[in-house]
Amino acid sequence: MAAPPPLAAYALRLGDDSLILGQRLSEWCGHAPALEVDLSLANVALDLVGQATHFLGVAGEVEGKSRDADALAFKRDVLDFTNCLLVEQPNGDFAQTIARQFLFSHFQELLFDALTGSSEPRLAAIAAKAVKEVTYHAQLASDWVVRLGDGADESKARMSAGLDWMWRFVDELFAMDALDNTLLKQGVAIDKAQLRPAWDARIESVLADAMLSRPAQRRPVLGGREGHHSEHLGHLLSEMQFLQRAYPGAMW
């Protein structure tokens, strides 16, 4: 199979990140610690699914094989997903979910902020709309990190454990590969490695407020962008894609 155009592959990565995290957060619906928190998480999830719709729409358009956002979301198998590993990690307890959101939303805010200057107008337009959503996600998650970290012994231990679990997947967020570099030269893509110092500063500042220490550096886990996923993604997709697999083309 011929490789897709670089822009299609790039939009697919952006869309997959949002889609998979949106689906993960949706699993909390009806299970959150309080009704208000249930709504908070569902709102974030819907923002992310909305972003995914736009990015996957661009990916399908550029690819030119008449696959729309729905086809890309519901009719690809696990090896064809190019999201980063962080977003597919299991929800765990509430603190683990917040840890994932905290690390990812700060990354996504910096990324989208930079992407508003992309030479590809469709990506720049999606980023301009989404950066406001993501700014709120980062704020919401940061507040929870502080509340749990600087809370009771139990909440501090759980917040700390959640960050420990997710920390292995941070380096992948900022990793650059051939696709990134090709599109970076055209002014389309963002130099993610350059976002790292700003991200580190934000994370450090919130962790200091939360009286938490930065998790110990461990061997980073990479591979999501090439379709090498953890076992968790297949289970997520089997639930997300069930309806379209069982009743192809079903609509309402």
Binding site: A34, L35, E36, V37, L39, D143
Partner: peptide
């Protein structure tokens, strides 16, 4: 109305529950 532990959380919950 919303339930919240502090003022900041109350604003966030109000935003999420009532301004969607």
């Amino acid at each position: 109305s919303v339930h919240a532990a502090d003022a900041k959380m109350a604003l966030e919950h109000a935003r999420d529950a009532y301004t969607r």
